[in-house]
Design a protein around this nucleic acid. Sequence first.
RNA 1: GGAGGCGUGGCUGAGCGGUCGAAAGCAGCACACUGCUAAUGUGUUAGGGGAGAAAUCCCCUCGAAGGUUCGAAUCCUUCCGCCUCCGCCA
Length: 420
Amino acid sequence: MLDIQFIRNNPDKVREGIKKKRIDPKRVDEFLARDKKWREIITELDGLRSRQNEITARLSKERDVGLIEEAKALKTKIQNLSGEERIVQDERNGILNNIPNIPFEDVLVGKNETENKVLREVGRRRNFQKEGFLPKDYLTLAEQLGIINVKKAAEVTGSRFGYLLGDGAMLELALVDFAIKTLRKEGFYPAIPPVMIKPEVYEGIGRLAADQREERFFIEKDEKYLVGTAEHTLIPLQMDETREESELPIRYVGFSSAFRREAGSYGKDTKGILRVHQFDKVEMISFTTTEESDREFHFLSDLQEKLWKALEIPYRVLEICTGDMGWTDARQSDIEAWLPGQNAYRETNSCSNTTDFQTRGIQARYRMRSGETRHMHALNATAFAIGRTIIAIIENYQTKEGFVEVPKVLRKYVGKKVIR
RNA sequence: GGAGGCGUGGCUGAGCGGUCGAAAGCAGCACACUGCUAAUGUGUUAGGGGAGAAAUCCCCUCGAAGGUUCGAAUCCUUCCGCCUCCGCCA
């Protein structure tokens, strides 16, 4: 959530910021109206409670029937007013939860994904024409090789699920191992987090706003959500913690399954494993000071590129415009890998600076050298979204015979050069 | 799932109906003192919120939410977490 004090003092900045994100700026005014009402009530309530405390102090010394009578009357008054206070506060906070993080000033303004900006294209695409064959799509190849099975998954579990089998499964383990070992060397601390989370924590990290709730799986009986990514349970590792400035940055590399309802994408990407309800992902998380987060953003984004370069797969980097940014983000960039079978780039990675938007709600703070405490800045960046990375490997490394070469850096894990 | 124990400030830990946001110790910070280190003395150090230009004043918080009471860290209920034992289980 945003800082309430900041919204009060800078309503125009917030209106402008969320408008850039294509969110109705009126939410700010609704918030301010409720906030004003709340402040009136709390001021009155504090006055009543002050009097109550005064009487209590007095009565602890001497009995006074008159004072007890006044206290009794005060008690009902306070009960009624605090009931009202709570309602108004809930209304106010409800609106607050539906205000996204605001983008940095220098972020490209745009209305949707068509206005993202390609920052660079990296890597050489294979010339299949020269090689004398047309590239196939990954699913055709993977089914022939028996390394992906979505048909059986549909029968067993439902649509938008898949099995990785044989060398497909080995590729996943290889990618996980490669990513974690690489990132460990960069100072990331390995973490395998829970994949379920309590509603109040989920809300605290700003991931349950009305706009995104539909995207979550919820287990009613136990009142727990399935996480949409490892980030969701990794960020709260710092919940209620106050670290020393000297301890930052804190970096985790997490591995977990990610669960998404994919509500609102019913007709989209219905084939294969490009868009599924469950996939595994290696994820980077950083906690930094307020000054360092922008630098950390580039650090993470560079590492993402390093991983793709290691796989020797062409990709491009996009600056995400305000209209396409994530709810919690102040800055975002994506990586799209080249898929020759589809003759298109497809999103595989995302890198986000969420500033203190996620840490405020869970009280993750640090103490500056001056003694002042602040909320940490939190960042998250995909290392590998396994399913999509495997798709990119299959399509980019396919052979004329319909086999798949294993990228050099993964060979020692998979144990072979070619999947056939 | 059943039985019991516990949850207090950065940490240890007292308080078990009445000026308690809370003793004491440790740690931290400031100052003083000693030739450095160490030691000692004094003072100081929780978080959140509201009003105010500020000084400052007020309110809330003893795992969470309710309840009893004029008054709750203290009593009652429920929940959450941790620990011990039993059951079940990879």
